[in-house]
Design a protein around this nucleic acid. Structure first.
Lengths: 160, 160
DNA sequence: GTGTGTGCAAATACTTTGCACTACA
DNA sequence: TGTAGTGCAAAGTATTTGCACACAC
């Protein structure tokens, strides 16, 4: 684990403790797995990784801890189509996801324009947007489309 | 059932038969339930309604038929957050959904601008958009926000 | 008639929960 | 040391499937 990750875990633990959450061996293991994860693992995968740190961690505890951390806004749960929920730490800025239908890879992106439009649309219907979900299920484009060189990065957008 | 619905069911049955799909009592029952549904019922609710027409319809058959109809693009499945999948006939134009977090009500909307942006974003990342999912989880706005009188209906957008 | 569709019950996949024991604060 | 957390096994929820019988074409 890099120093960065160790720091991230320490900060998370401190914040949780301040909120009265006990840091057990199992929770510490899961927190460091989550901090180290650059991807979007599901509960089973997180369990597998946590076991490498502490073999005693059970799958129930993984689920219980994930729910707890979700409630504390430490992790975010994503229920993509026809697959178990996948998790990521909630420290990054809000973003949406592109799911590669062939590989299952998840690419993060953010579009200021889409965020704005969504809020507008909700308001137009007399609603206040609490949260949203936007997933683009895609397949790698052919040679013509989406040439990297032609790409114009729009202000307010980024690639995750 | 209105004449419109009867016609809709007849057209669906014809189209399915032409594709070699047998129209059984159970499938006919489900088709008429689907044609009559103005909402987004889940499998259990569709089962309940289908039983009113033909008491012999089993839940397995409802699931099997829904999968079949989904494959034939006759119905669309929507897996909203933390709830069983909900279904609607696929005859209407493509649209996205606002989900009222308090009542579970589903409001349909369509935004040409969002559709365009999604395709653009996928292309920018070297992907071809196969399909997407966009759901706005909302709560009724307070008296200030979203005044109906102030609403500007943007070209290309409609309310379902 | 014949092959597809059906009901039923059991299986599946993911997730939650009851209970007795453990360990953090 | 007391209460919140844990592992385990069992239950729960949504959905799918194997099998013998039924029925649409």
């Amino acid at each position: 684990m890099s120093g960065d990750q160790a720091q991230k875990v320490a900060a998370l633990e401190r914040a949780l403790r301040d909120k009265g959450v006990r840091i057990t061996r199992q929770r510490a293991a899961l927190l460091s797995v989550l901090a180290a994860a650059g991807d979007h693992p599901d509960a089973t995968e997180l369990h597998r990784r946590a076991r490498e740190i502490d073999a005693s961690v059970s799958l129930s505890t993984v689920y219980r801890t994930l729910s707890l951390l979700e409630g504390q806004s430490v992790v975010q749960r994503h229920a993509f189509e026809g697959a178990p929920s996948r998790f990521e730490t909630a420290d990054a800025a809000h973003h949406d996801h592109i799911i590669d239908l062939e590989t299952g890879d998840v690419i993060e992106f953010y579009s200021e324009r889409i965020e704005r439009l969504q809020a507008e649309i909700a308001a137009e219907h007399g609603y206040e947007l609490v949260h949203h979900r936007m997933e683009l299920y895609c397949r790698k484009a052919g040679p013509r489309a989406g040439k990297r060189g032609r790409r114009r990065r729009s202000e307010g957008d980024f690639e995750g």
